[in-house]
Write a protein that binds this DNA or RNA. Structure first.
Length: 807
RNA sequence: GCGGAUAUGGUGGAAUGGCAGACACGUUGGUCUUAGGAACCAAUGCGAGAGCGUGCAGGUUCAAGUCCUGUUAUCCGCACCA
């Protein structure tokens, strides 16, 4: 027995002790020396909800903590900041219900989150903390808005909101459940309001192109590209018969123009109103329009299984390429928000049009040959040649597309057009708990931005956070705040009372982290040049299309106006899976399956908790929680702790364990980088099992294990490092390097297959190449017996693995 | 509906096209014990066995959990939840 026997593992005291040491020594503060190589690791800053920390937060945090701790051991200057995304709906609703100011609610929630995060021992740069609701922070959120406004990227537009007819308040989508108000069950309709919009569409192409320059996991890139939804096609004008107007459509298939047998305009299309006198069945159309207004876009496309629609009787359009008169319909599967809000329908070559035409007995004209359209539309664009299409006949779809576009442009009836599904960002909320939009409305000058020197525009103190009956923000009830003077003409003017969405503050927080206390600018050039871009950003897949895209948009804009030094904010983006309840369902209060991190840490300690969250399964997959599994991780740490009893004074890696230790170094180092934490930990468990099987290990063996395990379980590894009298502290040690030469043995067991079936396992020298291995195996007596004199037709040898003999 | 992903023992999961089930959890048996929700040891995919086994149906290959085609189920997102 060694002299290092310290009894039982006691995480509670060890963890407190080391958290204090790290804090007292400012161990994880980045160095001001900017000549050192830097690493900026980022996790999505939490929304400090009233429920406290969710077990999901530590999954992402621990993963990035592991990378950051490893980077420090590799010699990097590391920034790993934390902050609070604290504006938002739940806090405001809580404030309304309990009559407590949201600022106080927020402060309390943050306090609790901070305590919980500290309990888990993350190596955050606590001195860089930011809070989106702090005026010193939202000063710069407002400043960015002003720059967007000045660049013409902020504008006002009529946009629908969800309106509860009984509560008389605007609702977030989340508050609308099955088409009715979540709180009162009242009817929800779409009500149009004038709202601030940001022109993210202007950046659509840049946001696509930028993806080629960054290292995001592929599925994130794919989802972003699909969300932006670029398509190339054409806009074509269809003249309305006996009128001066044309219906403009957007189509990705101008090549099928000869097959257009009807048109569909969205129920909101302006021509319905304009031509109501000519529409003989207007009452029917109007009823349909009202019904459509009650559906969300989501429902409109979802319910598309059973297509509905009404013909606009009395209106006909003329197909510009063949002069044919075709009927005009309205249907809610055509959305006013995409393209021109009107389509030409080619039932032979579009699934939705096909279904619609079948239902309403509209003619179907095939214009791409070589296919069967009796039961379904033919939509493949890579085969078939044009038929029934006049001058396009005989061309391939691609050729036809080019030719028809130049024809349309020549004749002045259409143009080639790139379209994006991406829509502009609705930036207004009729809410209290958000950043005030720094604009005044002047009767003479229109919308005028505040002067930058007047920022931040503070949220006024109010008592009642409820919207007005007309759906205005509660800020309209504060006349002394609303009534102001125009920065332009000095005349009386009114402040904008809508506030910004929660997305605003989270769109640039990673910039503020680099210089969080700067009162003169959002961050200094020096700080941004050193720290940006973020080297590695981990977060949830659910943020892929909104937060990630919004923040890339803002960053690209700031780059274009010369504020930030790099065109992309995040060099690398990875993503974690959600932790589900023990029953495999999403954790929620109502399901009663919520696991509180405090309870787990009380029982098994932060190190075991961290270890379990990394071991529980593949990092990028959703996974159910298992408290039994977590206890298993505690047992592993106990076993590690008790290894000290067997440790010898030998300072080097022992001869006995050099192979397994070096294999573990390689495996753990590679797996951490690939975020394959579960297999990295499995490798360390294997190593510990080897140590126990041998009953002895050197101090060098233990030191290596401690260094590998330190990023996951920093407290207990620091403690053991100290107890066995290793020099310094483990976080100061250098990350171990694998000696490849020590990882191979002389002999290796391979499988012998006959006709693909495993028949035997034999040991062979590791050094044999493919041909040598085949020869060696055929000489083997056991193999000869298996072949039993039959003719060997082919031998496939895979060194280190198997030999397959075909007889 | 659209976009993205996933499917392997009783459970969580491993597996550059090359020995399926590493590493754990759980379970069973044992040792020690006044005791065991402790520790340690052993067994543990199914099947008595030949064999059979990675959601389902096909295909490619000497070889498929992995590649291809189709299909089913589940999860995430869908723009005012964060």
């Amino acid at each position: 027995m060694s002299k290092y026997d310290f009894g039982a593992y006691n995480p509670a005291s060890i963890e407190k002790k080391w958290q204090k040491i790290w804090e007292d020594n400012a161990t994880f503060e980045p160095s001001p020396d900017h000549s050192k190589p830097k690493f900026y690791g980022l996790i999505e800053f939490p929304y400090p909800s009233g429920n406290g920390l969710h077990v999901g937060h530590p999954r992402s945090n621990t993963a990035m903590d592991i990378i950051c701790r490893k980077r420090r051991m590799e010699g990097y200057n590391v920034l790993f900041p934390i902050g609070w995304d604290a504006f938002g709906l739940p806090t405001e609703n809580f404030a309304i219900k309990n009559k407590i100011h949201p600022e106080i609610v927020t402060a309390n929630n943050i306090e609790r989150f901070r305590k919980q995060l500290k309990m888990l021992g993350f190596s955050f740069t606590w001195t860089s903390e930011v809070n989106t609701t702090d005026p010193a922070y939202y000063h710069w959120t407002q400043w960015i808005f002003l720059q967007l406004f000045k660049a013409g990227l902020a504008y006002k537009a009529e946009m629908p909101i969800n309106w509860c007819t009984s509560c008389k308040v605007g609702l977030a989508n989340e508050e609308v459940v099955n088409g009715v108000c979540e709180r009162c069950g009242g009817e929800v309709v779409r009500k149009v309001k004038s709202q601030w919009m940001l022109k993210i569409t202007e950046y659509a192409q840049k946001l696509i192109d930028g993806l080629d320059t960054v290292d995001f996991i592929e599925k994130v890139k794919i989802q972003q590209r699909n969300w932006i939804g670029k398509s190339t096609g054409a806009e074509v004008d269809f003249k309305i018969k006996d009128a001066d107007d044309s219906i403009r459509v957007y189509t990705t298939r101008p090549d099928t123009l000869f097959g257009a047998t009807y048109m569909v305009i969205s129920p909101e299309h302006k021509y319905i109103e304009k031509y109501k006198d000519r529409i003989t069945n207007y009452a029917e159309v109007e009823a349909y329009k009202d019904a459509a207004a009650k559906k969300s876009e989501f429902e409109r496309t979802e319910l598309a299984k059973e297509k509905t629609g009404v013909e606009l009787k009395g209106l006909t359009a003329i197909n510009p390429v063949n002069g044919k008169e075709i009927p005009v319909w309205t249907s809610d599967y055509v959305l006013s928000s995409y393209g021109t809000g009107a389509i030409m329908a080619v039932p032979a070559h579009d699934d939705r049009d096909f279904e619609f035409a079948k239902k309403f007995n509209i003619p179907i004209i095939q214009v791409v040959g070589g296919c069967d359209i009796t039961n379904a539309a033919f939509t493949d664009i890579n085969s078939g040649t044009m038929i029934n299409s006049g001058f396009l006949d005989g061309l391939s779809v691609t050729e036809a597309k080019k030719k028809i576009i130049s024809y349309l442009e020549e004749k002045g009836i259409g143009t080639g057009k790139v379209n994006y599904k991406l829509r502009d960002w609705v930036f207004s909320r009729q809410r209290y708990w958000g950043e005030p939009i720094p604009v005044v409305n002047c009767p003479k000058c229109g919308y005028v931005p505040l002067d930058e020197k007047d920022l931040p525009l503070l949220l006024p103190e109010i008592d009642n956070y409820v919207q007005t009956d007309s759906g205005e923000s509660p800020l309209v009830n504060v006349p002394e705040w609303v009534n102001t003077t125009c920065p332009c003409c000095g005349g009386p003017a009114k402040r904008e009372t809508d506030t910004m969405p929660q997305w605003a503050g989270s769109s640039w927080y990673f910039i503020r982290y680099t210089d969080p206390k700067n009162a003169n600018e959002l961050a200094s050039q020096e700080a941004m040049k050193y720290w940006l871009p973020v080297d590695w950003y981990n977060g949830g897949m659910e943020h892929t299309t909104l937060h990630l895209l919004y923040s890339r948009f803002w960053h690209k804009f700031l780059y274009d106006i010369g504020v930030v030094p790099c065109p992309e904010p995040y060099q690398k983006r990875t993503s974690h899976g959600m932790i589900l309840g023990e029953n495999g369902e999403k954790m929620s209060k109502s399901r009663g399956n919520v696991i509180n991190p405090d309870d787990i840490v009380n029982e098994i300690g932060a190190d075991a908790f961290r270890l379990y969250e990394m071991f529980m399964g593949a990092f990028d997959q959703p996974i159910p929680w298992s408290t039994d599994g977590a206890r298993g991780c505690y047992r592993f740490l106990e076993r590690v702790y008790k290894l000290m009893k067997f440790v010898t004074e030998e300072k080097e890696i022992s001869k006995q364990h050099e192979k397994s230790v070096n294999i573990a170094i390689k495996k753990v180092s590679e797996d951490y980088e690939k975020m394959k934490y579960n297999t990295a930990i499995a490798a360390m468990m294997g190593l510990v099992n080897d140590f126990y099987a041998a009953g002895t290990l050197s101090k060098g063996d233990l030191a290596t294990l401690l260094k590998l395990l330190y990023p996951v379980c920093p407290h207990m590894t620091e403690e053991m490092w100290q107890l066995v009298e290793l020099p310094g502290m483990v976080h100061e040690a250098k990350w171990p390097e694998c000696d490849e030469s020590k990882t191979v043995s002389q002999e290796v067991e391979i499988a012998i297959q006959i006709l693909g079936k495993i028949k035997a396992r034999i040991n062979v020298p590791t050094s044999l190449d493919r041909n040598q291995l085949a020869e060696y195996v055929l000489e083997n007596d056991e193999v000869k017996a298996l072949i039993d004199g039959r003719a060997v037709r082919k031998v496939i040898a895979v060194p280190g693995s198997l030999v397959n003999i075909i007889i």
